[in-house]
Simulated scan of single mutants.
Amino acid sequence: MVTKKKVLVIGKNGQLGSEIGHQAQSFLDLNFTFTSSAELDLTDSAQMVNYFSSNRYDVVINCAAYTNVEGAEASEEEARLVNAIGVKNLAELCFLNKIFLIHISTDYVFDGSTGYPINEDVTPNPLGVYGRTKLEGEQFIIVSGCDHLIFRISWLYSQFGDNFVKTIANLSASKKELKVVYDQVGTPTSSIDFSRFLLKIIEDGNYLKFQGIYHYANQGVCSWYDFAYQIVQILQHDCRVVPVLSDEYPSKVKRPNYVVLNKRKLCKHFRVEISHWNDSLRHFLTNHKGLICNNQISI
C-alpha cells in the first residue's frame, strides 16, 4: 500500500489557500490538512513548536501573508511579523523536522524598472513595506537551510476573497464607466492554474527535483486597463473602460510600473505549459458568470 504524502496548507481562508482546498479533491494521492491563523499562528513561536512536535508532514504550503499593500505602509511591524518573522519560524521548524517548504511570494519584490520580463536572477529592489517584508521572508527561508521552493506570483485572482477580477465584474455590472490605470503592466495569475500546478508537482514528486526561487504567472502581458477591458468584454457588460494614468489616483504606495515575470526556468524544469492570461480569464469568468451576475460573489 502506497503511503499518501501528508500536505499542510497554511492560510486556508485566503485566495490561494481556498482554491487549493477546492482543488484538493482531485488529488487523491495527497493527504491534506488545512489551517487558518486562528488554528496555527506563524507569529506564535511556542504554538508553532508545539504543533510541529505533534504533527508530521512531508510538505508545507505556506499561503499565509499580510497582503494589504496600502495597509502595510501604516502597519510595518504587523506586516513584517507575518511576512518575515512568521516565515522565519516556519522555515526553521521545517528544517528541524525535515519538511519540504513551498512558500508563496510576490512580484512586489521588484521595482519595475527593467522594462523586460524579469527572471529569477534579477536583484530584487522592493518599493514599499509589503515587498520588503516579503523579500525578508524569502531570505529567511534560504538562510534556514530547509528544503524549499519559493514561487513569486503576480495579480492573483480566484473565486475566493477580494481581487481585481471580482471587483471589476461587480462594478461593471452597475456602472456605465470605469477608469482604470494603463501605465502599470504585468500579468494576471489564475489561482486555478497555479494551485493545480502546485498540487501536481507534489503528487508526482517533481517538487523534490528542483529547489530555489521560481516565477509563476499566466503567459502574456497586459496593463490593468487591458485586464479590466477583457473582463467587461467577456461578461458583455454595458460599461465603458477608460484608460488613465496612475497619478490620477494618489497612493501612499509606489507600485512597480512594469513587472512581467519570466517563467522560462519554471517551464523548463517542471515541463509545464502555462496558459495565456486571456484564455484562463475567459475560462474563469465563463464558469463563474452566474455567481457574479447574481451577486453571489462579494467583493
Rank of each mutant, 00 (worst) to 15 (best):
G86C: 12
Q159N: 07
V9F: 14
F34E: 02
D247C: 07
L42T: 11
G112N: 08
E203C: 14
N262Q: 04
D44G: 11
M48D: 01
A74I: 02
E138A: 08
L199H: 08
S275F: 00
F95N: 12
I102C: 06
G86S: 12
R132Y: 05
I99T: 13
S174V: 15
K252C: 01
Q219M: 10
K134A: 06
Q23D: 05
Y157C: 02
V272K: 03
Q25S: 15
A173L: 13
L42M: 13
K134N: 10
P243K: 12
A64W: 00
F210N: 15
N89G: 07
V109Y: 07
N89L: 09
K175F: 06
C267K: 09
E77C: 01
N62G: 00
I231V: 14
H22L: 13
A72R: 00
T114H: 08
N218H: 09
L40F: 10
V49L: 11
S275D: 00
L96S: 10
H269R: 14
K166N: 15
M48H: 04
L291V: 05
L281D: 03
E77H: 04
L208H: 12
Q159W: 09
E70H: 01
N163V: 10
S144Y: 07
V260Y: 05
L245Y: 08
R56V: 02
D204E: 14
Q139E: 13
P188F: 12
I231H: 10
Q236E: 11
L93T: 04
E177D: 06
N83F: 12
A173Q: 13
Y249L: 10
V87Q: 08
S246N: 11
T187L: 04
T35G: 02
K179M: 08
G115T: 06
E76K: 12
C239P: 03
V82L: 13
